[in-house]
Design a protein around this nucleic acid. Structure first.
Lengths: 229, 229
DNA sequence: CCGTCAACAGTTGCATACAAGTTTGCCATG
DNA sequence: CATGGCAAACTTGTATGCAACTGTTGACGG
């Protein structure tokens, strides 16, 4: 069911990905009419999309009649990644209190799938060229795990904050992981033990332990991201 | 200068305060046309305002054609307050790295003003009826202090998150403080020493210490808020 | 009495139109 | 050649109109 959402949503997504990929460079001026013409829709949905992007901090109003793509410096991206670490800790804390039994079971099921993929990777992985398909499948699975943990928090506002903080870091991180695993395909795999520990903490309702585990994990990821540059 | 902003902003603010005061009760259905008629403006600005409120989590879409005021339970408000604590820690951490000399001086100046007000309060305060004017002035000053610390972080996205997290808690907290000080007008005043310590940490660029102080302070405030109910 | 269906009213999404203000570029002048 | 002012074009904010869709209500059949 390819429900085409609303035109506003489409415009928002297209513009956001255009910014994330650099197609729209920081500092570029953006006008409602211009974007409307580019996307061949009327200015009204574009207006909505620009408002959302502005609230996300991706574009900024320079003057009363001038809007441009926000100049996110590397330092700011680093800051956002740090914000994300803190938020992930909070998410884990809330998840420990609000997760449903069904969600916890889903988390375990996801990790089981990840384990299977891991075995496949280690068995069939040829040095220097691990199974690309299984690798991206594993990354997808881990992203699903994280998203499910987010859902366990049952706090839409917090989740929105998290989304905002990783607009830039998420694709960047995925790329980095692909590179790292390509050169050393055991990289990062030991960290999955912490995921099991996280689920145990969530199941026990131990919010302090859950936060600590999530923080350590996120900080580890952030450190890896930083030293990779 | 009563610059009337845009009608969208006005509508957004009016509706938000209407929700915060309970004038619009949780579960109430909201329509663009209905609100437009109520505010005697056209549906377009109302539409913008409703979109922003939806992103803030204050209203939610029940169906494709049905929008209602979000049913924020007390538990959710508590959660947001906890989010705010974590965010305040992050803000302090960033402020320690990014604060300018002028901002640090401004912070000291604000605390000097607060000290003066404190002396006035203690001198002239009659038991059971402290000087109401000086008290609200002090609260305003402390809010100014917090806002200035926020500005020191130089991280607009983070600040926006903070605003979101305290939509409900801020007026509530102010009211609580007024009540508490009314019955014991030395309440909470000892905490100003931590503010001085925070500025010292910011000046030293000690982000870890700044975060710790801010966290302890915020958690203290949260605990006071909770035990007051 | 209850379940189902159909028509109607109401709502949203989008396009277009218009007014107010701003930016920009050009021209005249020192 | 630099500078100041002016005008035109462009931009945003808001209003209005229209089409598609949805939630609801009432009636009808079982």
């Amino acid at each position: 069911m390819t429900a085409t959402q609303t035109l506003s949503d489409q415009a928002y997504r297209q513009l956001r990905s255009a910014i994330a990929t650099g197609e729209l460079a920081p500092g570029d001026k953006v006008t409602e009419r211009g974007m409307a013409e580019r996307l061949t829709i009327s200015p009204t949905p574009v207006r909505e999309a620009l408002r959302r992007l502005e609230l996300d901090g991706l574009i900024e109003r320079i003057g009363p009649r001038t809007v441009r793509v926000a100049a996110i410096r590397d330092a700011a991206i680093d800051d956002l990644a740090e914000v994300e670490v803190g938020l992930r800790g909070l998410v884990a804390r809330f998840a420990a209190r609000h997760a449903t039994a069904a969600q916890l079971d889903a988390l375990d099921a996801i990790l089981d799938r990840a384990d299977d993929l891991l075995i496949l990777l280690k068995e069939r992985g040829h040095p220097g060229q691990p199974s690309e398909r299984h690798l991206t499948a594993l990354l997808d699975t881990m992203q699903e795990f994280n998203d499910t943990v987010d859902a366990c928090a049952h706090n839409p506002v917090l989740i929105r904050m998290l989304e905002q903080s990783r607009v830039f870091s998420r694709p960047q991180r995925r790329e980095l992981l692909l590179r790292r695993v390509a050169e050393d395909h055991t990289f990062g795999l030991e960290r999955y033990t912490s995921h099991r520990a996280l689920v145990r903490a969530l199941r026990a309702g131990d919010s302090a332990a859950a936060e600590r585990i999530a923080l350590e994990d996120s900080q580890g990821g952030l450190a890896a991201l930083r030293e990779a540059r």
